[in-house]
Each structure stands twice: as C-alpha cells, then as structure tokens.
C-alpha cells in the first residue's frame, strides 16, 4: 500500500482514473506457469469520460490504445451521466457485465448484507437477486 498510484503498474492519461497496465503479472493458469501477461497491451481503468485532450493523446498516441471495452451497466451509464466515450482512431465496445450498478454506493448496499446477515456472503457473491 505504500507505492504511489502514479507509479507502475499505474500509467497516466489525464482525466482517466486508476489507469494501469494489466501486463507484467504472472499467469494464474497452471498450463502457463512462469508466463507473464504481455506488458503495455491490456489496460484497466475507471470510467474515462472526463479524459482531457492531453489525456486523449496519452491514451491513444503514447499508450497506443486502439480499442476500449466499456463494462458498465446501463444503470451506471445513466446514473452518473457519463456517456460512452468517443475518440477518433479508437474503437469502443459496450459490453455490460450486469444490469446492476457496481459503483461503490451500490456495492456498499450489498456489503451491508455482508455485515448484518450471516447469509450476506451467499447473497453478495452467488445469488445477488434472491
């Protein structure tokens, strides 16, 4: 926890929160033991709609990002008024992984069950909609 969020694996694109390189990590697949994820290829970030013009240059031209996968649910897109991004020369794919929101507030509501109810873990992780 002592390392700075501005140091690797974190990389910078102004206006994009928590952007980091997923590369360089050891594979968890036993068949790929001692293999590492390809560096500078797969990036991970928070919602990037506040990217600045400088951030666009950093993301597209310096990091070379050519495709963005937006995993947010429709609820998240509407609720936070953060429309899908468009950047010239970069493709965008909307691919919600859930119809529910996974922002901290929504997650907090689910975690409340984790604290107050012994079955909270089951509800949180296995059956979010009992």
């Amino acid at each position: 926890m002592g390392s700075k969020i501005t140091e690797p694996p974190f990389v910078q694109a102004e206006g994009v929160i928590n952007l980091r390189d997923a590369g360089g990590q050891l594979s968890h697949l036993s068949s790929r033991a001692n293999h590492i994820v390809k560096p500078r290829y797969l990036y991970r970030a928070g919602e990037p709609s506040r990217i600045t013009p400088k951030g666009v240059i950093q993301l597209r031209d310096e990091l070379g990002v050519r495709m963005v996968f937006d995993l947010r649910s429709d609820v998240e897109v509407k609720g936070y008024k953060a429309d899908p991004l468009t950047i010239e020369g970069v493709g965008f794919v909307r691919s919600p992984v859930s119809s529910e929101a996974y922002d901290p507030f929504s997650l907090a509501r689910r975690l409340r069950g984790f604290q107050d109810d012994p079955t909270g873990v089951r509800i949180l992780y296995l059956f979010p909609r009992p």
């Binding site: 952007l19 797969l42 928070g46 919602e47 990037p48 495709m67 963005v68 922002d103």
Partner: peptide
C-alpha cells in the same frame, strides 16, 4: 469479445473499464 480482440489484433492495445471512483 476481449479475447477475440486479443487474438485478432495482437498489436493493438486495449482498455477495459467500468465505473471507477470518479463517478462516485
């Protein structure tokens, strides 16, 4: 979808994002 991109475009880096703290 992501794996398809990795397979078909190994030289084109990609970004995956969800909500993140800035929209909290």
């Amino acid at each position: 979808k992501v794996l398809t991109h990795i397979r078909d475009h190994p030289d084109e880096p990609c970004l995956i994002h969800c909500t993140g703290l800035n929209a909290v």
